Amino acid sequence: MFELLSKGPKALIVAVWVATLAYVFGGTRIPIPRVPKDYEWAPPILAILLGVWIATWAFSATWRSLVTLVRRIQVRWRFATSPLTYEEAELLYALAKEGGEDVHLHRAALSIGSRLNDQALTRAATGLSARGLIERDRYLRPPVTLTGRGKRQGAGLIKEYEAAMAAELKVGDRVRDIAGGPEMVVRAHLRPLRESGARRFGASVLCEIVGPDGQPFAHAFEQATLERVD
């Protein structure tokens, strides 16, 4: 009895239910003392009540487990289908450019001139793995391989990145404000990288303008407000 109590009241209730079932269905084959005839109705009712309570408890526990499982699946699905971070997108692009088969992370990043630092690279690889886009071992040892979905998404990223790089203004480009104005020359990109080292497309640029007095001066512009001059 004390051993059952130490396991909690549920264990004791289950034990009482089992003993009651044995009393009700065991008949005279099991040497259990019989209750007085005036109380023969009590054991079956007790067995039913305890059975209902145990079934309710078991269903409640199963339901809680199912709800927890569904929530975990929902969280993983939302994460897997959410937009890639800048670091994840850059690493996936690098891996796709290298073919996606048995690729070393650092080698792929260097091949596209990426400046992702080690922490960002590891974080991006972990995120891609959690999204089911790359296959890797638990210690993130090289090489890694893109999954089928990773290859498809990587192919799309290659097109997006190449289009973005083609549209990116470069130092030396001659530009002007899309609203009109004098020609200018791009001299530098302002904050072209994020803290992690990820590439920042469309960063502001520093342009050199020749003033009315003939003296050059510099001014920062958003790339979206400029157009190239042929």
Rank of each mutant, 00 (worst) to 15 (best):
R107A: 14
G211H: 06
L50D: 02
R29E: 08
I73L: 15
K151N: 03
A55P: 01
L12G: 08
T81V: 11
P9Y: 13
T81N: 13
E162F: 05
S60Y: 13
K159H: 05
G181Y: 04
K10A: 12
A218K: 12
L121E: 05
A42P: 01
V205R: 04
W17K: 08
T28L: 09
Q119S: 12
A94K: 06
I13Y: 11
R187T: 11
M165S: 15
F25W: 11
W77Q: 14
A124V: 04
R176C: 00
E88Y: 07
G181R: 02
T20P: 01
P216I: 06
A179L: 15
T145E: 06
M184G: 05
W17H: 15
V210R: 10
L140S: 06
V52N: 04
V24E: 08
G180V: 06
A166F: 03
E183D: 00
K151V: 09
A164P: 00
N117E: 14
Y139W: 10
V210T: 15
G148V: 02
A166K: 05
E101P: 01
V18P: 00
M184C: 00
A188Q: 13
V210D: 10
A220T: 07
A220C: 04
G100R: 10
R64H: 10
A55R: 02
T81I: 12
P44F: 00
Y86Q: 13
S129W: 15
L140K: 03
H189M: 07
G197K: 06
A61T: 12
F25R: 03
L12M: 14
A89Y: 06
A166M: 02
Y23V: 08
G202E: 02
R200V: 12
H106Q: 11
S111C: 02
F221Q: 02
L133E: 07
A94N: 06
Q223I: 10
G8P: 07
A15G: 01
T147N: 03
A224N: 09
K170A: 10
E162Y: 00
D38W: 15
V171N: 11
L157P: 04
E195R: 14
V171K: 12
K97N: 06
G127W: 04
V210G: 00
P143S: 05
